[in-house]
Design a binder for these strands. Structure first.
Length: 479
RNA sequence: CGAGGUGUAGCGCAGUUUGGUAGCGCGCUUGGUUCGGGACCAAGAGGUCGUGGGUUCAAGUCCCGUCACCUCGACCA
């Protein structure tokens, strides 16, 4: 881990702010390819399989909390975007517009959705009449388009895949509760599935979603000490309800505006996985989302019985629900070792004449590359299942230890600057003024990440202006 | 949009200064030998040199235009 971090620092120094190894790894491991249009990506099967596993895990959690999936159109009338003042201002500069069909100009421009609050708001105003229609708990899996100026595979692409939850509640309290519940789902998912510890908390006014009353985020620390906003959950108040005239008749017989939440995570999570766990050898995928959890590499394939044994083991593991792949290609074993380590496959199982003779398989863990040990063939399924769990736990522990050692509590601007320039997050008190946030951005290229729910103070003065502090907040350089 | 850079085989590049047969590495194909940490031998396939025009007996190379992409600064899941 330490070695990987040194490597990242070194590369980061050479190539500016963004580590080149990241792009190299993404391309070499065949997660994605560049698309023909700048800033778009083609998700290759290996990368898409990773996304499918993330989807499946998340979707199960959404269902378990009472949500249902639906789908809304990709094209949105431009006028919809205009209905919520802050929302237009936030998104208009980066939306793609459809202006023509063939040679005919459209009477009204269409927006390729950058997010779906507006079209969903429009539909919800038709769907919701009574308090009996609430709460309305809906999620959408979709693609969105945001034309950012600079793009990075997974971290910031012109088009990306995500899920967006859009809920409607009769009361403010219920909507706020939902906002925090889903933030909690994201945190739990990150910890138990992606093996990434997240800082959860509220974003500053400056950093919040255009049109929201409050935005909460999960923030992950990458191995170069930078922050990646990995998911957000917004409390929308009644802003969109008023803009789209969503009203319900309450028990007391009066019309009321409901309160809403929206929340989303995207393919950016794949970027988080790469940069929170990966190293100079390539990917290090957390077992519960790895497209291939264990790869079987037959040794001396031409010798009698080797292939047959490897196939038998593959079938046994697959039957037990382990995502297993047998590589029968005629590449040399050494080549295969490097290939699957680069691709981040958590476990490698070697099976050769020597193993068969001894009734074992030779196994190696990606998170502890180089170490080899043996497992008895007669109990391989539980052996592999235990190892997958252990790999997950040690990956989480390593990420947490790294993060803990890269957070510094700071009292003044010098300490804050030193911390973020030393690839750390800074935790400080803050007066809450936009001016101080702007100043920190200007001086150190660091932005506020979020304000943790545990607001027990680490001082009483703002780190920047020295006035009485209102909040405890994390700062960091971010992707 | 401001500054800089690059376009030559699937990928990475040399060749451009000084115009003269289109090259190298990896990958790919075929055959053989190998196989416990990125194997080796042999034979092959693969090119409108980003693009349009000009100069010249002759242009990847020189001149003019144009397009695309990359890096760095202002916006962002």
């Amino acid at each position: 881990m330490a070695k990987a971090n040194e490597f990242v620092k070194e590369i980061a120094d050479i190539h500016g702010d963004f580590p080149q190894w990241y792009t190299d790894v993404v391309l070499k491991t065949q997660l994605v390819d560049y698309g023909p249009v700048k800033g778009t990506m083609v998700m290759r099967p290996y990368g898409y399989a990773l996304w499918e596993n993330i989807q499946r895990e998340l979707d199960g959690r959404f269902k378990a909390t009472g949500h249902r999936n639906a789908y809304f159109p990709m094209l949105i009338p431009y006028s919809f975007l205009m209905k919520e003042a802050e929302h237009v201002e936030g998104f208009a500069p980066e939306v793609a517009l459809v202006t023509h069909i063939g040679d005919n100009e459209l009477p009204e421009k269409l927006v390729v959705r950058p997010t779906s609050e507006t079209i969903i708001g429009h539909m919800y105003s038709k769907w919701i009449q009574s308090y009996r229609d609430l709460p309305l708990l809906i999620n959408q899996w979709a693609n969105v388009v945001r034309w950012e100026k600079t793009t990075r595979p997974f971290l910031r692409t012109s088009e990306f895949l995500w899920q967006e939850g859009h809920t409607v509640h009769a009361t403010r309290e219920e909507a706020e509760e939902e906002t925090l519940r889903m933030l909690g789902v994201y945190e739990e998912f990150s910890r138990n599935v992606l093996a990434i510890p997240m800082f959860t908390g509220r974003k500053s006014e400056k950093e919040k979603f255009a049109g929201a009353d409050a935005t909460y985020s999960i923030e992950a620390m990458m191995l170069d000490g930078k922050s990646l906003q990995s998911g957000t959950s917004h409390y929308l108040g009644d802003n969109f309800a008023k803009a789209f005239d969503i009203r319900f008749l309450d028990k007391d017989g009066s019309h009321k505006y409901p309160y809403q939440s929206s929340w989303g995570v995207s393919t950016r999570l794949i970027g988080a996985v790469i940069m929170a766990h990966g190293d100079e050898r390539g990917l290090k995928l957390p077992p519960y989302v790895a497209p291939v959890q264990a790869v079987i590499i037959p040794i001396a394939m031409h010798k009698a019985g080797v292939i047959e044994k490897a196939e038998e083991i593959a079938a046994t593991l697959a039957k037990a629900g382990i995502r297993v792949e047998l590589d029968k290609s005629d590449n040399s074993p050494g080549w295969k070792f490097n290939e699957y380590e680069m691709k981040g496959v958590p476990l490698r199982i070697e099976i050769g004449p020597r193993d068969i003779e001894n009734g074992v398989a030779t196994v190696s863990r990606r998170d502890k590359a180089g170490e080899k040990f043996t497992l008895p063939l007669n109990d391989l399924v539980s052996g592999i299942q235990n190892l997958l769990r252990e790999v997950h736990e040690s990956m989480y522990a390593a990420a947490l230890a790294f993060r803990d050692s890269h957070v510094k509590t700071v009292k003044n601007m010098k300490e804050l600057g030193d911390a973020v320039n030393d690839n750390c997050f800074a935790l400080s008190m803050w007066c809450g003024d936009r001016g101080c946030e702007d100043k920190i951005k200007e001086e150190f290229q660091a932005t506020s990440r979020n304000m943790p729910f545990d607001q027990s103070p680490v001082g009483d003065k703002c780190v920047c202006c020295g006035k009485k502090a209102k909040y405890k907040i994390y700062w960091g350089k971010a992707y």
